[in-house]
Write a protein that binds this DNA or RNA. Structure first.
Lengths: 235, 235
DNA sequence: CGGTGTGTTGAGTGATGTCAAGGAATGTGG
DNA sequence: CCACATTCCTTGACATCACTCAACACACCG
């Protein structure tokens, strides 16, 4: 069983044959997207499903003044929420943060698969709803929390999701985001992102080393970010 | 055909029998929620589908410090996005802004209906994705736009959705939100919401009269809010 | 007719943005 | 292995948007 299938098992009870189907599905049409390249572009037709076998990406919306709001992060094993059966034109862009291996599954194949297995269908729906719940939390994070709280919350979320997805198992993880991009997640300027990160270090909550975040005080970080992971366990 | 069914026809091709089914569905179990009452409460199990035949509501998340972020507005004919087939516990609260007539449809009945008609199934999925797209736009609105832009955007969105849903047909509509609640949508304080509203009036974009918004200059308002409705037409 | 929720306005404060400059890290071609 | 470019990080000074506190006006309602 590959790790994508493994991941989707968290979302629904999958039979052995479901798992085989998913394994095959994720291994065909494996496409590589280099760091910085667009997987889906705002305004363009959505033709295929994109399932991230490996690599990170971000969902962003472009603003008039050149700013960019990041509306979601994709980690290995995530599906990209844009459902080509429903969405005609993408309302946002998906960009690879690292080199990504993506299973590009065309609409029809996926349709047939979902019709054949209600468990897989359910797993995809649950995954979609998790994205939705995360989105609501982000609105809250960006809106009502200050920079320190928001950044602590973001780090907690990524740590939790990475552990849940079994991508990591300790309190250290690579975060392939520049401070500019972190700022775009939280809707703060680069300069302020930098100061806020320093503040979290000063508080002894995290350390940073070569693009990796080391969580020094998880409880403290949860508290600082008012992080409550229940939104990540909706089903 | 009742107006709820009429609304869902925007989302999928519904046959006459689909419409009949929906009519019957929305007319059974019609429950009234008085202004201020909770339709769904954060943390509690989600047992039923809620389809708003009439009335406004808001989705909100409670914060530690007593603040509240409104993460979405429900207008007549909307479904409440919480899908009881997927979501076990609500990650947010849904509260009636006006007296609401809600069709409360239990999970099993809906399941049977969705299995019977793929068009209805599709309509519900499209409605769900529209909510998701709106949510992304709100994250952007709250994050990267200042108070004037954000408020202009919010008014544009509601005006557009109300027209799309055929709830109104002119440039005037009742907005059953106090300035406190408007502030909670945009993540600004009441005081600032008040000043921002005055600013929009001063700019000659809108007028306010007894809880109703009158749009004086729609193009100007679109521009002020950088409003582009394409996210509301995803399918 | 007083109470309660809502809207309005002023004054002072704080968080975050902008601009600017330089330093560290990383990659590339010679 | 070095020279250089580029990207990213860091820090300081100053500006601004939005917040808080506070007071009062207004309207609806029992």
């Amino acid at each position: 069983m590959n790790h994508l299938t493994y991941r989707l098992r968290d979302f629904a009870d999958l039979s052995q044959s479901d798992c085989d189907v998913l394994d095959r599905l994720s291994e065909t049409n494996r496409t590589v997207f280099e760091r910085g390249s667009s997987v889906v572009s705002e305004g363009e037709p959505v033709e295929n499903w994109h399932v991230f076998y490996d690599g990170w990406a971000y969902h962003s919306k472009q603003l008039e003044n050149g700013d960019r709001q990041i509306v979601g992060l994709v980690i290995p094993g995530d599906i990209c929420g844009l459902n080509p059966a429903i969405v005609q034109r993408a309302d946002h862009t998906v960009t690879a943060l690292t080199r990504c291996e993506v299973s590009v599954i065309d609409r029809k194949t996926m349709k047939r698969t979902l019709e054949t297995s209600s468990s897989i269908d359910r797993a995809m729906q649950v995954a979609t709803f998790e994205i939705e719940a995360i989105q609501r939390e982000w609105t809250t994070n960006v809106g009502h929390r200050n920079a320190v709280e928001g950044m602590a919350h973001l780090i907690c979320e990524m740590h939790f999701r990475l552990r849940q997805a079994k991508v990591i198992d300790g309190d250290r993880f690579a975060l392939p985001l520049t401070q500019q991009l972190i700022g775009d997640c939280l809707a703060i300027s680069v300069v302020h992102a930098n100061r806020t990160l320093s503040e979290l270090r000063r508080l002894g909550l995290i350390a940073v080393s070569g693009g990796a975040i080391i969580i020094l005080d998880l409880d403290g970080l949860y508290e600082a970010g008012h992080f409550d992971p229940s939104y990540l366990n909706i089903s």
